[in-house]
Design a protein around this nucleic acid. Sequence first.
DNA 1: AGGATGGTAGCTCGGCCGTGCTATAAAGCC
DNA 2: GGCTTTATAGCACGGCCGAGCTACCATCCT
Lengths: 205, 205
Amino acid sequence: MPKIVDPGARRKAVAEAVLRVVGRSGLEAASLRNVAEEAGLAIGSVRHYFSDHDELVIFAMGELTGRIEARVLAHVDRLLDPADAAERRTRAEDLLAEFLPLDQERHEEAVLWIAFATAARTRPGLLPHARQLQDGMLGVVTRVLRGGQEAGGLPADLDIGTESLRLSALLDGLTLQAVLQPGTLTADVLRQVLRRHLDSLRTPA
Amino acid sequence: MPKIVDPGARRKAVAEAVLRVVGRSGLEAASLRNVAEEAGLAIGSVRHYFSDHDELVIFAMGELTGRIEARVLAHVDRLLDPADAAERRTRAEDLLAEFLPLDQERHEEAVLWIAFATAARTRPGLLPHARQLQDGMLGVVTRVLRGGQEAGGLPADLDIGTESLRLSALLDGLTLQAVLQPGTLTADVLRQVLRRHLDSLRTPA
DNA sequence: AGGATGGTAGCTCGGCCGTGCTATAAAGCC
DNA sequence: GGCTTTATAGCACGGCCGAGCTACCATCCT
């Protein structure tokens, strides 16, 4: 039986178990024992694929950030590919909405992201993944705003640097509040706030 | 020696030790042993003032939120007391700036707040304090915006509900990013983003 | 056929955890 | 002075943790 196993797939399966445990009970509950049970494996089997507990958690975070990144980048392609300016605004909003927990899947990802990102402050091993996703988000937001400016949809004198920070902070804040207060910030409200913000950018300073 | 001790003061002193440990090593490090050592007490002494480990952590979070609340409410009084509209804008900005980690003290508080608030998701005992501060912040932001509108500094057709959510989310997001990326978001940048946001609210939709 | 390889499993150890429980000493009260 | 109260201290237990290590077994290679 053993040889035919794809190690990468196994690692991913275990990582998913980690994410499920973290989503359900928090990062501190992601022990080897709990993860092994969640994955339906023995503790020794899990350790066969991960030398360290740290490596397990870091890899799981990498899976999470990779998933989020892929979903956003797909929208980036869709935004930049067609040159029809008519749908540009809609596409931009949809792209930025990918950062918000608008459905259950993205809410779960947001919960996980907040858990790992905040844990990175005291777990140096998680910092690279946290920085990468955060920088990536700022980069995407910056590209969207700059693109909108070049397309004429946004005022030419808009300070893209400051506005990118403001918008990315808004997205982060909405995500954080949605995670901390599930039920209060519904998907409709989140979308409305985002739309209001994008509208406000169109009016000259 | 024993009788002359003020229990409240002792509990506060131990709570401060909790906050120091959490700030340095994260909430998961706030064990009775670590806290007792930080407070310079024996583990048994700490337990004399707190029946439970849970109670200790919850009380410490209460101390934190109480501290933040008191600081903000002082600004609220200062904002509402004088009726000189000239300084109103400045006072409002200063009040809102109290939510941002502009100096080392507030940065430390922001770190602690994020740690406790995110932990509240899997620790039900922390939820009340988290909700209270979060609701309080939204309430203060709402009052500031509504006050600005009534004073004529903001457009009359501004949707205070949505704008309050947007602004409070922005403040939360800036705080989160400043905590996650210390050094990147300097105090100057934070203030600039806040100022830009308040400026943008003055222009009619 | 038989050794090598790699997946699966779990026992064991030392360490930290919260907590039940007990012991000691200092202060106030009669 | 004796008794109660309370602050301080810490021992001991059971539980969970990560990690070292060994054992077993299925497959593949020669």
